[in-house]
């Protein structure tokens, strides 16, 4: 009972921080938080226009390819936002962290909750397109929320490190943007993993999670990668998380 009470009160605080973060991001903006929807929606529509309307892909594979691309984009867009927002979350809330007794960890959950919200909102737009152009596995679509929640935690392991490095190295957001581009092109989102590309994809820590995500979302999707390829990344990310909380935390907090 005590655990649930503690969890609920912690969640309440995180939720307030999430709302505050949105309020700050979109304060004074004409469309407010609607920008987030406009931004993601426009991106999806652009891809839809290029890949579906302009028919850039071989027409014979059009049916499968649309599901392939849009499930990839649905996977990637919220994760990219999580990566970029998560990196700067501590530096952006520096003053607040100094004044509150909440601790640093609470703040790292802000981009995670936002990531879940972004995923939920983007998924509705994408699923409409997918239901028209592809075969959606509706049960898998529901399960995908849990899968994405787990993947978010997996990425959060890395963010625990990046947000601390961002304090120590002042601002690593240009580096993180570059990293996100490398991750994006290293994932089979817009292309099929054949030959050398497949080998290249196997080096991407998000490759297997994307593969599982597609298996959940698209009917008859054949998984192309194996869990054992993912294990070293998982172990490594847990180690990163552990070391970020260990001595590194002490060093970083002295420089906040």
């Amino acid at each position: 009972m005590n655990f649930f009470h503690k969890f609920f009160s912690q969640f309440q605080i995180i939720w307030i921080l999430v709302r505050r973060d949105y309020a700050l991001q979109y304060a004074g903006s004409a469309f407010g938080i609607a920008w987030m929807l406009i931004q993601n929606g426009t991106l999806i529509l652009l891809y839809a226009f290029v890949f579906l309307y302009l028919n850039l892909k071989n027409p014979t594979t059009q049916h499968d390819y649309s599901g392939y691309v849009f499930s990839g984009l649905l996977f990637w867009i919220p994760l990219q936002e999580l990566l970029i927002r998560g990196t700067s979350i501590l530096t952006d809330n520096r003053q607040l962290i100094k004044r509150s007794s909440l601790g640093v960890s609470v703040f790292i959950w802000i981009p995670y909750i936002q990531y879940l919200i972004h995923y939920a909102l983007t998924s509705f737009m994408v699923i409409i397109i997918l239901s028209i152009y592809s075969d959606v596995n509706w049960l898998g679509f529901v399960i995908s929320y849990f899968w994405m929640a787990l993947i978010g935690i997996y990425v959060l392991f890395l963010i625990n490190y990046l947000c601390r490095v961002n304090i120590l190295l002042k601002d690593i957001s240009p580096l993180v943007r570059l990293l996100s581009q490398i991750l994006f092109w290293g994932l089979p989102i817009l292309y099929y993993p054949f030959g050398i590309l497949e080998k290249f994809n196997q080096l991407n820590p998000l490759n297997y999670p994307l593969d599982i995500f597609r298996s959940l979302l698209i009917t008859n999707y054949q998984s192309q990668f194996h869990f054992y390829e993912f294990l070293p990344f998982l172990a490594f990310s847990i180690l990163i998380f552990y070391f970020s909380k260990y001595k590194f935390q002490k060093v970083v907090m002295d420089h906040l």
Partner: peptide, 11 residues
């Protein structure tokens, strides 16, 4: 020095 500390997790 900062970079070394960042890469080595402060060790």
């Amino acid at each position: 020095d900062r970079l070394l500390s960042s890469i080595s997790f402060g060790l």
